[in-house]
Structure formats: C-alpha cells, structure tokens
Design a protein around this nucleic acid. Structure first.
Length: 504
RNA sequence: GGUCCCAUCGUUUAGCGGCCUAGGACACCGCCCUCUCACGGCGGCAGCAGGGGUUCAAAUCCCCUUGGGAUCACCA
C-alpha cells in the first residue's frame, strides 16, 4: 500500500451521475435534511443521472421505525422521487444498512488482508494517559502507536481478555479535494489520527459503512451538510484504501451544503418548531411553496426571480452555484413564497388542498355535501389571494357553514364598531328586504346598500359596512362583504343582521 | 488548543477586475387602489466587517486582523 492518495475522483457529469440521500432515522424530519434531499434530487434530475435513497440505521439506540416512516411521508408529500433504493430496489440491495452486515464483514476482511486496517487494543482512557505522559495534548487523540503490533503483543492483549477495535491506517500525506461548492480544500498531513472503523464487538461504524455503501452503490457525487466537511479527508483516506484493495474504482466528488441557521448565529436546532418539516405542513404550506423556499436556502434561480416551479429549478440547478455561506431560515420570507404559490394554484386544485384543513377544523364533513361543495366553490376564489398558509382558511370561512345562532361576535370586532351600529343595521335590513330573493346577488346587494347607507345616510363606507361585516361573520375581517351575503342568501343574511341588531 | 469552513442592505441574494452612483426579493415605512383583510401599483429606508497590498482600475485577486461557525467519539 502507498502513503499517497492514488485513487481518481469521479468524472461523472451527465447521465452517469449518481447522487444519494441517506438519512439516519432519528427524530423528526428537519428542514435542513430535506433541503439536502432536495438538492440531491434536483441535481439528479438536472443531469439526467439517478437519485438513490438509502437508510443509515446502524444505531439501534436512536433509530426508530416511526422516524423512518416520517422520512418516507415527507419525501412522498414533497414529490421527491428516487430511482434506486428503499422500497424501489436496485442492483445494490439491500438499502437499509441494518440489513447489510454481511457486506461490511466482507469489506473488512479485504481491508484487513491488504493491511489498510489494523487491530487496536488501547482504550480511550489508556490513550489519554499515554498522551499526558508524552506531554501531548489530549485533544489530539490517538497516537497511532499500535500500527505495527507484533503477533506476540496482540496475543498478550488477547490473553488479558481484550478484543481489538479496527483502525484505518491513514496515509501520511496532505489530502486535497475540490469541493463542488467551496473549491479546493487541503487538509495537511497529520490533521487527524488513525480512526476506528470497527468496534471491538465487530460492529462497523458510520465512518466505515457510509463510504463503503457509497462506493459499492456507485455514488459519484456526495452532496451533504457542511457538518461533514471535516470528516471528508478521513473518508477519502478510506476510499483510497478501498481503491487499493480493489473494492472501488473512484472517489466521489464532494459538495458541502451550507447550514440552515435559525435566529442569531446558531444552527436551526431540532428543538426549534420551524425545523420540523411537518410543522410547516400542518400550518398549511403547500409542497410547491416549501420546496421553492427550501431551494432558496443557499441557491437562487436568477438575480430577479424567486418564485419558480420545480421544473424551472430542475432545469437550472447546479451544485456549483450553491452558496457556501450559511442560510438563515426566515419564516416571513417562507410565508411570502408560500402565499405566492397558493395564488398560482388553479381554483379546483386550491379547493382540494383546502379540504383537509377544513375537515380537521370540523367545518365540513369527511365527504362534502352538495351544499358545502357549492359554498366552498363560491368562497374559494374570494380567499385564495388572502391566504398565507392554508390553515388560515377555517377561521376565514367558517361563518358561511354555520347557522345564525352559531355566530359569536369576536372581541376585536366589537371594539371596532361605530356608535350608530344599530341605526346602520336597521337601514341595511330594510334596504335588503326590498330585494327579491332572485336578485340577491353581489352587484344588486352592493347597489342597494350603497344607496341606502352611503348616498342617503351619508355614511363613510367604512362606517356603513363594518357593522354588516361583523353582523354576518362575527368578525372584523372577512372575505368580501357583498359576495359573502350572496353566498349566505337573503333570508340568512337578514336573520343575522337582525340578531346582531338586537344584541348590539 | 489543532484542523477546516464562512463574511455584500435587518434577512436572502445579484455581482466572477472597468457595465456599481452596488441590482432584485422578503421585511419595514409612506402613497395609490379599496367594504375589512389581502392582491396589485408607485415610492422610500438600508449593505461591500477592518487594514494592508496587486492593478491604470478592486465588492470582485492576494495577505493579515476581526467576527461567526464546524469538527477533533469505539454517534450518525
């Protein structure tokens, strides 16, 4: 074996590109994780290459099936489809690391045989003691002192009942690679010691299985979070060992995506609610809006367009244009992007996306009655441009699905009422009563009220219509008034205004 | 502490030596539209972290400083 890096880097650029998403199923799907999935997906779709999905569940302590299901749920909701991997299959099955132990065993044997990994019997405490005795900083870690243990020394350790961990013999050379988003990066020789790849109990660690799987699965581009940047030279060392042992033909290209920050200068923590992808779905983000915003975390379509479709993203996306500096998750910007995408929806599409939110708020039933459907059809266009997130819809439209006696007047609506509210209501009721049932339409209602309240009583529109709005909806803010009255119909409108006049 | 990464308006981003009197978007503030809230339109506020170089010319290239962040596990 050599002490240099002799393996070549992947030269894939087109349909031969293979990227992957390989989360470990712990906890809730984090928006940063999903952004990573998105960029990998987009790069595969852009290049015409393939997108692989693997699960890294080698940590039985922390992994959970619920978390695994949530990741699947998230990818499915967002439409990030993969070509190879979990639930899809492919040439490198299986795609869950927990089912690949025999494969790692084989690789470990080859690496042992080629002399790239060696037995290490020292415990962490013993290493600290050695460092202190040698006047070496404890933080420097292992001192590579067991590289050339004799068979006698190993036998002696074993007699003590010890089992060895396995460490990779790290080449004593600078390690340089060209990061797709950051350019050339060099880690000087000696930046890190020989590291453990297999536990004394035979369990391989992430440091081994991640590169092994990428190598065996033919991954050409590793696009991942910046937190993995400093482990990249270690992985390159391992790739080189695998190359020399005949296990792989190349080292993938690496691109380290910037962090997703929360408020201040800290990484968006798993504890922050906005870190949870499903928090946004529950609030009523639509996939188009969330995906668009997430893609803006470190990337941009062009200098003057930040609302775009996934097709546009795929056509334009290249890792090379990803920004190296950390991106802050800005809820207000995200909301604005989502609102823009809601407005872009066709009316039918918008209606159907509203359904789950109306249903879970108990405003409509599991299946829509004919009456509910016609109300929804009528009100949808009125609220489409008013929503930032879909979960705002129930509060805005619930009054249309209720009966007069179910309307409660909200406090802020009461506070905004003018002195002459009752007078306004009486005048409005008498004007509306003159309209025939059949002509109770937006335009005629508006004309009648305009004439009675603005022209005759000389009221300001705000004073005239405020009480009516509150009367029919119980709220200070509502969808457009006259349209709402048309939806309610003459009888219901007047009933509500009367009831409100009595109460006021 | 060792090693590595990052640095343009409040936020995000354009800029890859002259097109920069630094452009856009979100946020914010006015005004217009208007039955509320929105949408839409118009206008405004606001930035190259600091210092040295290189160059006829630097936001852009180099160095240093400062500030932020990551990583140094028998976690992933």
């Amino acid at each position: 074996m050599s002490s240099l890096i002799t393996a070549p880097f992947s030269t894939a650029t087109g349909a031969d590109v293979k990227v992957r998403f390989c989360p470990s199923p712990t906890g809730l799907p984090h928006v940063g994780l999903i952004r990573t999935a998105l960029f990998n997906w987009a790069y595969a779709r852009h290049t015409g290459g393939s997108f692989l999905f693997r699960i890294e569940d080698t940590d039985a302590e922390r992994d959970s099936e619920e978390s695994f299901d949530m990741i699947l749920d998230a990818l499915g909701w967002l439409g990030l489809t993969w070509d190879e991997g979990v639930n899809v299959g492919g040439p490198a099955e299986p795609y869950r690391q927990s089912e690949r132990s025999h494969i790692y065993l084989d690789v470990i044997e080859k690496l042992k045989a080629s002399g790239h990994i060696y037995e290490s019997y020292l415990t962490g405490e013993e290493i600290d003691v050695r460092n202190k005795a040698a006047g070496r900083a404890v933080q420097l870690g292992y001192d590579n002192s067991e590289r050339d243990l004799t068979e006698e020394q190993k036998a002696a350790y074993r007699t003590e009942g010890r089992s060895p961990a396995l460490r990779l013999r790290v080449p004593e050379t600078d390690i340089t690679f060209t990061d797709l988003v950051r350019g050339e990066i060099t880690f000087p020789a000696g930046s890190f010691p020989d590291f453990v790849v297999v536990r004394p109990n035979g369990q391989p660690l992430y440091t081994l299985v991640n590169p092994v799987d990428d190598a065996l699965m033919g991954v050409t581009h590793v696009l991942r979070g910046e937190d993995l940047l400093s482990s990249t030279p270690r992985q390159i060392a391992l790739y080189n060992a695998m190359y020399e042992a005949g296990i792989t033909k190349f080292i993938p290209q690496f691109g380290h995506l910037p962090y997703v920050m929360g408020e201040g200068t800290k990484k968006l923590s798993k504890r922050d609610p906005e870190a949870n992808l499903f928090h946004h779905r529950d609030r009523g983000f639509i996939p188009e809006g969330l995906l668009n915003y997430l893609s803006l975390l470190g990337w941009g379509l062009s200098a003057d367009q930040d609302i775009f479709t996934m097709e546009e993203l795929v056509a334009a996306f290249d890792v090379k244009n990803v920004n190296p500096n950390p991106a802050r998750f800005d809820q207000k910007k995200a909301d604005a992007i989502n609102a823009a995408h809601i407005r872009l929806l066709t009316l039918d599409d918008f209606k159907s996306r509203l359904m789950p939110y109306l249903q879970s708020a108990g405003i409509v039933g599991a299946t829509l009655s004919a009456e509910e459907d016609s109300i929804l059809t009528a009100v949808a266009p009125l609220i489409q441009e008013r929503l930032v997130v879909l979960s705002e819809a129930p509060d805005l439209v619930s009054f249309l699905f209720k009966t007069a006696d179910e309307i409660a007047i909200e406090d802020d609506a009461k506070a905004g009422l003018p002195e002459n509210t009752v007078e306004v209501l009486i005048a409005a009721i008498s004007a509306l009563e003159k309209l025939a049932e059949a002509e109770f339409k937006t335009e005629t209602v508006q004309a009648a009220l305009q004439a009675a309240l603005i022209d005759e009583l000389g009221l300001k529109p705000r004073v005239a219509f405020g009480p009516l709005r509150t009367g029919i909806s119980g709220r200070r803010i509502s969808p457009p008034l006259f349209e709402s009255m048309e939806i309610l119909g003459k009888a219901e409108t007047i009933t509500r205004l009367r009831a409100f006049a009595v109460a006021a």
